[in-house]
Computed example of a mutant assay.
Amino acid sequence: MLKQQIQTDMKAAMKAGEKDKLGVIRLIMAAIKQREVDERIELDDAQVLAVLDKMVKQRRDSITQYDDAGRTDLADVERFEVGVIQGYLPEALSEAEISALIEAAVAETGASAVRDMGKVMGVLRPKVQGRADMGAVSALVKQRLGG
C-alpha cells in the first residue's frame, strides 16, 4: 500500500539525515492521518492519492502567488515539496490519454450537454485522480460538452 511506502521512506529519510525530504514526508503523513481521524476510516490507496493530489494543487497555487510577489525563495521551497509529493503519484497522463478517457466517459454516461458534466466527472475522477490536474480535466470536459 501507498501509505506503508510513505512510512518506509520516512524512516529511510530519517536514517539518511535528509531533513528537507523528511519534513515533506511528515507533512504527507499528517495530512493522511488528519483525514483518517476526521472521517474515522483507514484510507485506501485511491484516497491517499486524493490527499496527495490536493497537496500538490495547494503548493502549485502557492508557487504562483509567491512568484507573483517576487518571493522566489518561498516558491523554491514549494517546488521542492511538489517534487517529493509527486514521487508518490502515478505517472501523469498525456493529453491524448486524457482525451480518450473523456470520450469513453462521455460515451459511457450518454452525456450530451454541460448539464451532464457531473456524471462524466464522476466516471473520470477515479481514473485520472493523481495523474492529471482535475481543474484542467474539468475544463476539457466542459469544452467537449459544448460549454
Rank of each mutant, 00 (worst) to 15 (best):
L2H: 03
K3G: 03
K3E: 05
K3C: 05
I6L: 06
T8D: 15
D9Y: 02
D9E: 12
D9W: 02
K15T: 13
K15L: 15
A16T: 09
E18V: 10
E18R: 12
E18K: 12
K21M: 04
L22C: 08
G23T: 03
I25K: 00
L27Q: 15
I28H: 02
M29G: 08
Q34V: 10
Q34F: 11
R35G: 07
R35M: 12
E36K: 04
E36I: 09
V37C: 09
D38S: 12
D38K: 14
E39Q: 14
E39K: 15
E39W: 11
I41Y: 09
I41T: 13
E42N: 14
E42R: 15
E42T: 15
E42G: 10
D44S: 07
D45M: 08
A46E: 15
A46F: 13
L49R: 14
L49A: 06
A50E: 12
A50D: 13
V51C: 04
L52M: 08
D53W: 02
M55Q: 07
M55G: 04
M55N: 03
V56P: 00
V56W: 01
K57L: 11
Q58M: 11
Q58A: 12
Q58N: 15
Q58I: 07
R60P: 04
R60M: 10
R60L: 09
D61K: 06
T64Q: 12
T64D: 11
T64L: 14
Q65W: 09
Q65T: 12
D67R: 15
A69I: 07
G70F: 03
G70W: 04
T72S: 14
T72P: 06
D73C: 07
D73H: 08
D73T: 05
D76Y: 09
R79T: 04
F80E: 05
V82M: 03
V82L: 04
G83D: 06
G83T: 05
G83C: 05
V84D: 00
I85M: 02
G87P: 02
G87M: 06
G87A: 07
Y88R: 03
L93E: 00
S94E: 05
E95L: 09
A96I: 10
A96H: 08
A96Y: 06
I98N: 00
I98P: 00
S99T: 11
I102Y: 00
A105V: 04
E108K: 14
E108P: 05
E108V: 10
A111F: 01
S112C: 08
V114Y: 10
R115F: 11
D116L: 04
V120P: 01
G122S: 14
G122A: 12
V123A: 13
K127T: 08
K127H: 10
V128S: 01
Q129L: 12
G130V: 00
R131I: 00
R131W: 05
R131F: 04
A132V: 03
M134R: 06
G135R: 03
A136H: 11
S138P: 05
A139F: 12
L140Q: 14
Q143N: 14
Q143V: 08
L145P: 01
G147V: 09
